[in-house]
C-alpha cells in the first residue's frame, strides 16, 4: 500500500524543495452545491435576492418577498438564509427579519415550514424553500400555528384577520404588539411571531398538514 522506502525518498525531497504554491481556500462540498443552487435560481417575480457580504459569500444571503396576492399584498418581508458547510445534508437556517403578523411566523422571526426542519431532504434546494416561503404568504395556515392568536383570528374571523394584517403592515398595533410600516425594514427588539406551515416536498404526492398525527 504505502511504500516506506518511497516515503524515505520523499522526506528528503520535501526538505530540498519546500516551495508550496499559493494557499487556496478550501471550498466545502456544501458551498459547491450551494453555488449550483444559486446559479440555477428561478425566482418568482415576487422575490428579490441579495448578498450583503458580496459575490463570494453565498452562504449568507437575504430574500425579500413582495406578495402579489392574498392577505399580504403590498407588504415586503425579508428572510435571512444561513447555509452551513454541511448543506445539503442540513437545511439552511431561515429567519424572517421583518416583524410580521402571521399564524406561521413568530415575533422572533422563527418560521414554521416543514421543509426547513423535519421534512428537509438533500434533494430539496434554495428554490424549493423560496417557493415554500411564498406559499406561506398566499396561504397562511391556521392549523399548525406558531402565532396562536393570529391563527385563531384567521380561523374564526378571516375579515378581522385581513384588517389585522393591514393594520400591522401599515405600521400599527395588533394585540398590543407594534409592527413596522410596510412590513418594512429589519426586525427591531422585542418578540416576534412563529410561523408554522406544512408544504409537501415537490417530489412527493401532495400530503400537506400531517403535523397532528
Amino acid at each position: 500500500m504505502i511504500n516506506l522506502f518511497k516515503i524515505k525518498g520523499q522526506k528528503k525531497e520535501e526538505a530540498a524543495n519546500s516551495n508550496g504554491g499559493p494557499p487556496v481556500k478550501k471550498q466545502s462540498p456544501g458551498e459547491l452545491r450551494l453555488h449550483k443552487d444559486i446559479a440555477e435560481l428561478n425566482l418568482p417575480k415576487t422575490t428579490k435576492i441579495s448578498f450583503p457580504n458580496g459575490k463570494d459569500d453565498l452562504m449568507n444571503f437575504e430574500a425579500t418577498l413582495r406578495p402579489d396576492e392574498g392577505y399580504y399584498l403590498g407588504g415586503s418581508f425579508t428572510f435571512t438564509f444561513q447555509v452551513s458547510p454541511a448543506y445539503p445534508h442540513e437545511a439552511p437556517k431561515v429567519k424572517c427579519k421583518t416583524k410580521v403578523y402571521h399564524p406561521n411566523i413568530d415575533l422572533e422571526g422563527n418560521v414554521c415550514l416543514n421543509i426547513l426542519r423535519e421534512d428537509w431532504k438533500p434533494v430539496l434546494n434554495i428554490n424549493t424553500i423560496i417557493y415554500g416561503l411564498n406559499l406561506l404568504f398566499s396561504q397562511p395556515n391556521d392549523e399548525d400555528p406558531l402565532n396562536h392568536e393570529a391563527a385563531a383570528v384567521l380561523r374564526d374571523n378571516p375579515q378581522k384577520f385581513q384588517r389585522n394584517v393591514q393594520m400591522a403592515m401599515s405600521g400599527g398595533y395588533v394585540d398590543n404588539t407594534h409592527f413596522p410600516r410596510g412590513g418594512g425594514g429589519g426586525g427591531g427588539g422585542g418578540p416576534c411571531y412563529v410561523l408554522c406551515f406544512w408544504l409537501a416536498p415537490p417530489t412527493l404526492a401532495p400530503n400537506a398538514n400531517h403535523c397532528t398525527i
Binding site: N110, V111, C112, R117, L146, H148, V194, C196, C211
Partner: peptide, 22 residues
Amino acid sequence: FECNIWLFPPQVKFPLCTLAET
C-alpha cells in the same frame, strides 16, 4: 466520505409548531 454521504439518515427534528403548541 463524500461519495457516500447521502447514506446518512437525516437528523431528527421536531416541527416548530409541535414545540409551540402541542
